[in-house]
Design a protein around this nucleic acid. Structure first.
Lengths: 192, 192
DNA sequence: GATTTACACTAGCGCTTGCTTGGTTGACCC
DNA sequence: GGGTCAACCAAGCAAGCGCTAGTGTAAATC
Protein backbone atom coordinates (compact mmCIF):
# COMPACT_ATOMS: atom_id res chain seq x y z
CA UNK A 1 0.00 0.00 0.00
CA UNK A 2 2.42 2.63 1.11
CA UNK A 3 6.02 2.86 2.12
CA UNK A 4 6.80 3.14 5.83
CA UNK A 5 10.54 3.65 5.57
CA UNK A 6 12.20 6.71 7.00
CA UNK A 7 12.31 8.88 3.90
CA UNK A 8 13.43 12.48 4.26
CA UNK A 9 9.87 13.51 3.59
CA UNK A 10 8.66 11.44 6.51
CA UNK A 11 11.36 12.90 8.74
CA UNK A 12 10.14 16.39 7.97
CA UNK A 13 6.50 15.47 8.54
CA UNK A 14 7.49 13.91 11.87
CA UNK A 15 9.17 17.13 12.88
CA UNK A 16 6.05 19.12 12.12
CA UNK A 17 3.87 16.64 13.96
CA UNK A 18 6.04 17.03 17.05
CA UNK A 19 5.39 20.75 17.02
CA UNK A 20 1.63 20.25 17.03
CA UNK A 21 1.75 17.50 19.64
CA UNK A 22 3.55 19.88 21.98
CA UNK A 23 1.18 22.75 21.30
CA UNK A 24 -2.08 20.83 21.58
CA UNK A 25 -1.28 17.47 23.11
CA UNK A 26 -1.58 14.22 21.19
CA UNK A 27 -5.26 13.62 21.82
CA UNK A 28 -6.37 17.08 20.79
CA UNK A 29 -4.30 17.04 17.64
CA UNK A 30 -6.49 15.72 14.82
CA UNK A 31 -5.23 14.19 11.62
CA UNK A 32 -6.79 17.15 9.82
CA UNK A 33 -4.74 19.58 11.87
CA UNK A 34 -1.61 17.56 11.21
CA UNK A 35 -2.32 17.49 7.48
CA UNK A 36 -2.92 21.23 7.34
CA UNK A 37 0.34 21.92 9.15
CA UNK A 38 2.08 19.67 6.64
CA UNK A 39 0.43 21.36 3.69
CA UNK A 40 -1.42 18.26 2.48
CA UNK A 41 -4.91 16.79 2.85
CA UNK A 42 -5.75 14.48 5.70
CA UNK A 43 -6.07 11.43 3.47
CA UNK A 44 -2.56 11.87 2.11
CA UNK A 45 -1.17 11.58 5.59
CA UNK A 46 -1.82 7.85 5.60
CA UNK A 47 0.50 7.34 2.72
CA UNK A 48 3.38 8.11 5.10
CA UNK A 49 2.07 6.66 8.35
CA UNK A 50 -0.08 3.63 8.99
CA UNK A 51 -2.16 5.44 11.57
CA UNK A 52 -2.07 8.32 14.03
CA UNK A 53 -0.32 6.20 16.64
CA UNK A 54 2.55 5.61 14.29
CA UNK A 55 3.15 9.33 13.99
CA UNK A 56 3.47 9.56 17.74
CA UNK A 57 5.84 6.61 17.81
CA UNK A 58 7.97 8.21 15.09
CA UNK A 59 8.19 11.47 17.01
CA UNK A 60 9.17 9.77 20.24
CA UNK A 61 11.67 7.51 18.55
CA UNK A 62 13.43 10.46 17.01
CA UNK A 63 13.39 12.45 20.23
CA UNK A 64 14.83 9.67 22.31
CA UNK A 65 17.45 8.70 19.74
CA UNK A 66 18.53 12.29 19.58
CA UNK A 67 18.83 12.62 23.34
CA UNK A 68 20.73 9.37 23.53
CA UNK A 69 23.12 10.45 20.79
CA UNK A 70 23.86 13.80 22.37
CA UNK A 71 24.40 12.22 25.79
CA UNK A 72 26.77 9.56 24.44
CA UNK A 73 28.76 12.12 22.51
CA UNK A 74 29.01 14.29 25.61
CA UNK A 75 30.35 11.42 27.69
CA UNK A 76 32.84 10.47 24.99
CA UNK A 77 34.20 14.02 24.94
CA UNK A 78 34.76 13.83 28.65
CA UNK A 79 37.51 12.70 30.98
CA UNK A 80 36.78 10.16 33.67
CA UNK A 81 36.31 12.71 36.44
CA UNK A 82 32.89 11.99 38.03
CA UNK A 83 32.15 15.68 38.51
CA UNK A 84 32.74 16.61 34.90
CA UNK A 85 30.79 13.58 33.71
CA UNK A 86 27.84 14.61 35.83
CA UNK A 87 28.08 18.11 34.46
CA UNK A 88 28.35 16.82 30.90
CA UNK A 89 25.22 14.70 31.24
CA UNK A 90 23.20 17.55 32.66
CA UNK A 91 24.40 19.87 29.92
CA UNK A 92 23.61 17.30 27.25
CA UNK A 93 20.12 16.90 28.61
CA UNK A 94 19.51 20.63 28.38
CA UNK A 95 21.06 20.84 24.95
CA UNK A 96 18.52 18.42 23.57
CA UNK A 97 15.97 20.99 24.60
CA UNK A 98 17.74 23.46 22.36
CA UNK A 99 18.17 21.29 19.31
CA UNK A 100 15.11 19.07 19.43
CA UNK A 101 12.78 20.47 22.00
CA UNK A 102 9.46 19.35 20.57
CA UNK A 103 10.32 15.71 20.06
CA UNK A 104 11.87 15.55 23.49
CA UNK A 105 8.84 17.05 25.20
CA UNK A 106 6.54 14.67 23.40
CA UNK A 107 8.70 11.74 24.48
CA UNK A 108 8.33 12.86 28.08
CA UNK A 109 4.69 13.77 28.21
CA UNK A 110 2.88 11.65 25.65
CA UNK A 111 4.52 8.32 26.43
CA UNK A 112 1.31 6.99 27.93
CA UNK A 113 -0.53 7.45 24.65
CA UNK A 114 1.61 4.85 22.91
CA UNK A 115 -0.05 1.52 22.34
CA UNK A 116 1.53 -1.58 23.81
CA UNK A 117 3.66 -2.71 20.83
CA UNK A 118 5.13 0.73 20.26
CA UNK A 119 5.83 1.11 23.94
CA UNK A 120 7.65 -2.21 24.05
CA UNK A 121 9.76 -1.23 21.08
CA UNK A 122 10.65 2.21 22.39
CA UNK A 123 11.25 1.33 26.01
CA UNK A 124 14.64 -0.11 25.06
CA UNK A 125 15.76 3.28 23.84
CA UNK A 126 14.48 4.91 26.97
CA UNK A 127 16.17 2.38 29.20
CA UNK A 128 19.45 2.98 27.41
CA UNK A 129 19.21 6.68 28.15
CA UNK A 130 18.38 6.17 31.80
CA UNK A 131 21.18 3.64 32.12
CA UNK A 132 23.66 6.33 31.12
CA UNK A 133 22.37 8.50 33.92
CA UNK A 134 22.51 5.81 36.53
CA UNK A 135 26.06 4.97 35.60
CA UNK A 136 27.15 8.58 35.99
CA UNK A 137 25.29 8.93 39.26
CA UNK A 138 26.78 5.72 40.60
CA UNK A 139 30.25 7.08 39.91
CA UNK A 140 29.44 10.36 41.60
CA UNK A 141 28.15 8.53 44.65
CA UNK A 142 31.19 6.28 44.79
CA UNK A 143 33.46 9.32 44.62
CA UNK A 144 31.59 10.94 47.49
CA UNK A 145 30.63 13.81 45.24
CA UNK A 146 26.98 13.48 46.11
CA UNK A 147 25.32 11.52 48.86
CA UNK A 148 22.15 9.55 49.32
CA UNK A 149 20.39 6.48 48.07
CA UNK A 150 21.28 5.45 44.52
CA UNK A 151 17.67 4.95 43.47
CA UNK A 152 16.39 8.13 45.02
CA UNK A 153 19.16 10.39 43.86
CA UNK A 154 18.75 9.38 40.24
CA UNK A 155 14.99 9.90 40.45
CA UNK A 156 15.39 13.31 42.06
CA UNK A 157 17.94 14.43 39.50
CA UNK A 158 15.90 13.17 36.56
CA UNK A 159 12.90 14.95 38.03
CA UNK A 160 14.69 18.25 38.36
CA UNK A 161 15.97 18.00 34.80
CA UNK A 162 12.80 16.76 33.17
CA UNK A 163 10.91 19.55 34.84
CA UNK A 164 13.08 22.09 33.04
CA UNK A 165 10.96 21.72 29.92
CA UNK A 166 8.25 23.57 31.80
CA UNK A 167 10.24 26.70 32.50
CA UNK A 168 13.54 26.71 30.63
CA UNK A 169 13.70 29.20 27.79
CA UNK A 170 16.42 28.20 25.32
CA UNK A 171 16.39 31.75 23.93
CA UNK A 172 16.87 33.19 27.39
CA UNK A 173 20.00 34.36 29.13
CA UNK A 174 21.25 31.12 30.60
CA UNK A 175 23.11 28.62 28.48
CA UNK A 176 22.70 24.88 29.06
CA UNK A 177 26.26 24.87 30.31
CA UNK A 178 25.56 27.46 33.01
CA UNK A 179 22.38 25.76 34.06
CA UNK A 180 24.09 22.39 34.30
CA UNK A 181 26.75 24.01 36.43
CA UNK A 182 24.15 25.38 38.82
CA UNK A 183 22.49 22.01 39.18
CA UNK A 184 25.75 20.22 39.88
CA UNK A 185 26.77 22.90 42.35
CA UNK A 186 23.51 22.45 44.20
CA UNK A 187 23.95 18.69 44.39
CA UNK A 188 27.61 18.25 45.08
CA UNK A 189 29.46 18.71 48.32
CA UNK A 190 32.89 20.15 48.75
CA UNK A 191 35.41 17.40 48.19
CA UNK A 192 36.61 15.63 51.28
CA UNK B 1 -31.17 25.57 35.12
CA UNK B 2 -29.04 23.77 37.64
CA UNK B 3 -27.16 24.55 40.78
CA UNK B 4 -23.40 24.97 40.54
CA UNK B 5 -22.66 25.27 44.25
CA UNK B 6 -20.35 22.89 45.99
CA UNK B 7 -22.86 20.40 47.33
CA UNK B 8 -21.57 17.22 48.98
CA UNK B 9 -22.81 15.31 45.97
CA UNK B 10 -20.71 17.44 43.67
CA UNK B 11 -17.68 16.96 45.90
CA UNK B 12 -18.03 13.21 45.60
CA UNK B 13 -18.49 13.35 41.84
CA UNK B 14 -15.40 15.53 41.59
CA UNK B 15 -13.42 12.95 43.50
CA UNK B 16 -14.49 10.21 41.13
CA UNK B 17 -13.73 12.36 38.11
CA UNK B 18 -10.19 12.90 39.38
CA UNK B 19 -9.65 9.17 39.46
CA UNK B 20 -10.62 8.79 35.81
CA UNK B 21 -8.64 11.84 34.72
CA UNK B 22 -5.52 10.29 36.21
CA UNK B 23 -6.18 6.88 34.68
CA UNK B 24 -7.04 8.05 31.19
CA UNK B 25 -6.05 11.67 30.93
CA UNK B 26 -8.58 14.48 30.57
CA UNK B 27 -8.96 14.33 26.81
CA UNK B 28 -9.55 10.59 26.65
CA UNK B 29 -12.06 10.64 29.46
CA UNK B 30 -15.50 10.99 27.91
CA UNK B 31 -18.57 12.31 29.67
CA UNK B 32 -20.07 8.84 29.26
CA UNK B 33 -17.14 7.26 31.09
CA UNK B 34 -17.45 9.84 33.83
CA UNK B 35 -21.17 9.25 34.17
CA UNK B 36 -20.73 5.48 34.36
CA UNK B 37 -18.09 5.82 37.05
CA UNK B 38 -20.50 8.03 38.96
CA UNK B 39 -23.39 5.62 38.53
CA UNK B 40 -25.57 8.06 36.59
CA UNK B 41 -26.34 8.73 32.93
CA UNK B 42 -24.27 11.13 30.89
CA UNK B 43 -27.03 13.71 30.63
CA UNK B 44 -27.40 13.93 34.40
CA UNK B 45 -23.82 14.99 34.68
CA UNK B 46 -24.70 18.41 33.35
CA UNK B 47 -26.99 19.02 36.23
CA UNK B 48 -23.92 19.28 38.46
CA UNK B 49 -21.39 20.83 36.08
CA UNK B 50 -21.88 23.33 33.29
CA UNK B 51 -19.56 21.46 30.98
CA UNK B 52 -16.65 19.05 30.94
CA UNK B 53 -14.16 21.86 31.50
CA UNK B 54 -15.85 22.75 34.75
CA UNK B 55 -15.28 19.24 36.06
CA UNK B 56 -11.58 19.62 35.40
CA UNK B 57 -11.52 23.00 37.09
CA UNK B 58 -13.31 21.56 40.13
CA UNK B 59 -10.79 18.74 40.41
CA UNK B 60 -7.82 21.04 40.13
CA UNK B 61 -9.27 23.54 42.56
CA UNK B 62 -9.74 20.86 45.18
CA UNK B 63 -6.30 19.39 44.61
CA UNK B 64 -4.51 22.69 44.91
CA UNK B 65 -6.51 23.82 47.92
CA UNK B 66 -5.71 20.56 49.62
CA UNK B 67 -2.00 20.84 48.90
CA UNK B 68 -2.00 24.42 50.10
CA UNK B 69 -3.81 23.51 53.30
CA UNK B 70 -1.45 20.65 54.14
CA UNK B 71 1.60 22.78 53.44
CA UNK B 72 0.38 25.66 55.60
CA UNK B 73 -0.46 23.35 58.45
CA UNK B 74 2.96 21.75 58.19
CA UNK B 75 4.69 25.11 58.42
CA UNK B 76 2.55 26.16 61.35
CA UNK B 77 3.55 23.02 63.26
CA UNK B 78 7.17 23.87 62.74
CA UNK B 79 9.83 25.88 64.49
CA UNK B 80 11.69 28.59 62.63
CA UNK B 81 14.71 26.44 61.85
CA UNK B 82 15.23 26.63 58.05
CA UNK B 83 16.26 22.98 57.83
CA UNK B 84 13.16 21.68 59.56
CA UNK B 85 10.96 24.01 57.54
CA UNK B 86 12.45 22.70 54.31
CA UNK B 87 11.91 19.17 55.51
CA UNK B 88 8.34 19.93 56.53
CA UNK B 89 7.47 21.36 53.13
CA UNK B 90 8.91 18.38 51.29
CA UNK B 91 7.07 16.00 53.59
CA UNK B 92 3.81 17.91 53.16
CA UNK B 93 4.18 17.75 49.41
CA UNK B 94 4.57 13.99 49.51
CA UNK B 95 1.74 13.61 51.99
CA UNK B 96 -0.69 15.20 49.58
CA UNK B 97 0.17 12.32 47.30
CA UNK B 98 -1.02 9.99 50.03
CA UNK B 99 -4.23 11.73 50.94
CA UNK B 100 -5.33 13.25 47.67
CA UNK B 101 -3.17 11.75 44.99
CA UNK B 102 -5.58 11.92 42.08
CA UNK B 103 -6.58 15.53 42.38
CA UNK B 104 -2.97 16.52 42.88
CA UNK B 105 -1.77 14.64 39.83
CA UNK B 106 -4.49 16.18 37.71
CA UNK B 107 -3.53 19.64 38.94
CA UNK B 108 0.03 19.00 37.82
CA UNK B 109 -0.51 17.31 34.51
CA UNK B 110 -3.79 18.58 33.10
CA UNK B 111 -3.32 22.27 33.83
CA UNK B 112 -2.89 23.05 30.16
CA UNK B 113 -6.33 21.70 29.37
CA UNK B 114 -8.02 24.45 31.38
CA UNK B 115 -9.59 27.21 29.35
CA UNK B 116 -8.41 30.76 29.89
CA UNK B 117 -10.97 31.91 32.49
CA UNK B 118 -10.51 28.84 34.67
CA UNK B 119 -6.76 29.17 34.42
CA UNK B 120 -6.88 32.78 35.50
CA UNK B 121 -9.04 31.91 38.47
CA UNK B 122 -6.91 28.98 39.60
CA UNK B 123 -3.48 30.47 39.04
CA UNK B 124 -3.87 32.45 42.25
CA UNK B 125 -4.12 29.27 44.24
CA UNK B 126 -1.11 27.86 42.48
CA UNK B 127 0.91 31.00 43.04
CA UNK B 128 0.10 30.88 46.72
CA UNK B 129 1.46 27.36 46.93
CA UNK B 130 4.64 28.20 45.07
CA UNK B 131 5.11 31.29 47.19
CA UNK B 132 5.29 29.08 50.28
CA UNK B 133 8.08 27.13 48.66
CA UNK B 134 10.04 30.15 47.62
CA UNK B 135 9.84 31.58 51.10
CA UNK B 136 11.19 28.40 52.62
CA UNK B 137 13.93 28.15 50.03
CA UNK B 138 14.91 31.77 50.54
CA UNK B 139 15.38 31.09 54.24
CA UNK B 140 17.45 28.01 53.53
CA UNK B 141 19.65 29.96 51.17
CA UNK B 142 20.07 32.80 53.63
CA UNK B 143 21.09 30.33 56.32
CA UNK B 144 23.68 28.79 54.01
CA UNK B 145 21.89 25.48 54.19
CA UNK B 146 21.75 25.17 50.44
CA UNK B 147 23.51 27.13 47.78
CA UNK B 148 22.76 28.44 44.34
CA UNK B 149 20.47 30.83 42.55
CA UNK B 150 17.12 31.46 44.21
CA UNK B 151 15.12 31.01 41.03
CA UNK B 152 16.94 27.93 39.88
CA UNK B 153 17.01 26.14 43.20
CA UNK B 154 13.28 26.44 43.68
CA UNK B 155 12.65 25.18 40.15
CA UNK B 156 14.99 22.23 40.61
CA UNK B 157 13.43 21.29 43.91
CA UNK B 158 9.90 21.60 42.60
CA UNK B 159 10.91 19.47 39.64
CA UNK B 160 12.36 16.73 41.79
CA UNK B 161 9.26 16.69 43.97
CA UNK B 162 6.68 16.95 41.23
CA UNK B 163 8.36 14.11 39.41
CA UNK B 164 7.73 11.85 42.39
CA UNK B 165 4.17 11.26 41.21
CA UNK B 166 5.68 9.19 38.42
CA UNK B 167 7.46 6.71 40.61
CA UNK B 168 6.50 7.14 44.27
CA UNK B 169 4.35 4.35 45.64
CA UNK B 170 2.48 5.54 48.74
CA UNK B 171 1.88 1.91 49.71
CA UNK B 172 5.58 1.12 49.42
CA UNK B 173 8.24 0.96 52.07
CA UNK B 174 9.26 4.56 52.28
CA UNK B 175 7.20 7.04 54.22
CA UNK B 176 6.87 10.65 53.06
CA UNK B 177 8.94 11.62 56.06
CA UNK B 178 11.85 9.39 55.08
CA UNK B 179 11.72 10.51 51.49
CA UNK B 180 11.67 14.15 52.48
CA UNK B 181 14.68 13.47 54.66
CA UNK B 182 16.58 11.95 51.75
CA UNK B 183 15.83 14.91 49.54
CA UNK B 184 16.91 17.44 52.13
CA UNK B 185 20.06 15.45 52.83
CA UNK B 186 20.91 15.47 49.16
CA UNK B 187 20.44 19.22 48.91
CA UNK B 188 21.89 20.53 52.12
CA UNK B 189 25.51 20.98 53.03
CA UNK B 190 27.07 20.42 56.39
CA UNK B 191 26.56 23.51 58.47
CA UNK B 192 29.37 26.01 58.40
C1' DG C 1 6.93 3.73 -24.93
C1' DA C 2 5.03 0.88 -21.26
C1' DT C 3 5.12 0.12 -16.33
C1' DT C 4 5.98 1.24 -11.85
C1' DT C 5 6.49 4.24 -7.92
C1' DA C 6 5.73 8.16 -4.86
C1' DC C 7 2.71 11.37 -3.52
C1' DA C 8 -1.27 13.72 -3.56
C1' DC C 9 -6.35 14.27 -4.17
C1' DT C 10 -11.79 13.85 -3.44
C1' DA C 11 -15.41 11.96 -1.07
C1' DG C 12 -17.36 9.95 2.53
C1' DC C 13 -18.27 5.89 5.93
C1' DG C 14 -19.08 4.49 10.51
C1' DC C 15 -18.60 5.94 14.83
C1' DT C 16 -17.94 8.91 19.01
C1' DT C 17 -17.94 13.26 20.94
C1' DG C 18 -19.84 17.03 24.20
C1' DC C 19 -23.98 18.67 25.13
C1' DT C 20 -29.31 19.67 24.90
C1' DT C 21 -34.10 18.84 25.39
C1' DG C 22 -38.15 17.62 27.66
C1' DG C 23 -39.82 15.03 31.08
C1' DT C 24 -40.11 11.91 35.59
C1' DT C 25 -39.32 10.87 40.45
C1' DG C 26 -39.32 11.28 45.30
C1' DA C 27 -38.27 13.97 49.39
C1' DC C 28 -39.45 18.00 51.82
C1' DC C 29 -42.52 22.32 53.03
C1' DC C 30 -46.26 25.30 54.32
C1' DG D 1 -52.14 18.26 49.20
C1' DG D 2 -50.45 21.51 46.02
C1' DG D 3 -45.90 23.52 45.13
C1' DT D 4 -40.99 23.42 45.03
C1' DC D 5 -36.74 21.55 44.08
C1' DA D 6 -32.58 18.70 43.40
C1' DA D 7 -31.50 14.71 41.05
C1' DC D 8 -31.94 11.88 37.51
C1' DC D 9 -33.28 9.67 32.81
C1' DA D 10 -34.22 8.61 27.69
C1' DA D 11 -33.40 10.13 23.35
C1' DG D 12 -30.93 12.29 20.16
C1' DC D 13 -28.58 16.31 17.56
C1' DA D 14 -24.76 18.50 15.19
C1' DA D 15 -20.13 18.30 14.78
C1' DG D 16 -16.00 16.12 14.59
C1' DC D 17 -13.23 11.98 14.72
C1' DG D 18 -9.78 8.37 12.51
C1' DC D 19 -9.45 6.19 8.59
C1' DT D 20 -10.54 4.04 3.76
C1' DA D 21 -11.48 3.62 -1.15
C1' DG D 22 -10.63 4.88 -5.43
C1' DT D 23 -8.42 8.10 -8.64
C1' DG D 24 -4.98 11.44 -10.84
C1' DT D 25 -0.37 12.59 -12.14
C1' DA D 26 4.41 13.57 -12.74
C1' DA D 27 8.81 11.53 -12.35
C1' DA D 28 11.67 7.45 -12.35
C1' DT D 29 12.61 2.83 -14.19
C1' DC D 30 12.52 -0.81 -17.39
Amino acid sequence: MNVMNDSPRRKELTRQAAQLFVQEGFDRTTVRMLAQEMGIKSGSLFHHFRDKQEILAAVIEEGTENALGIARAALDDCDSNPASRLHAMARAHLETLLTDRNAHVVALYEWRRLDAPARAHLSHLRDAYEALWEEVIDDALAAGLIRGDRFLVSRFVMGALNWTVRWYDPDGERTPDELAGELVAMLTHPAG
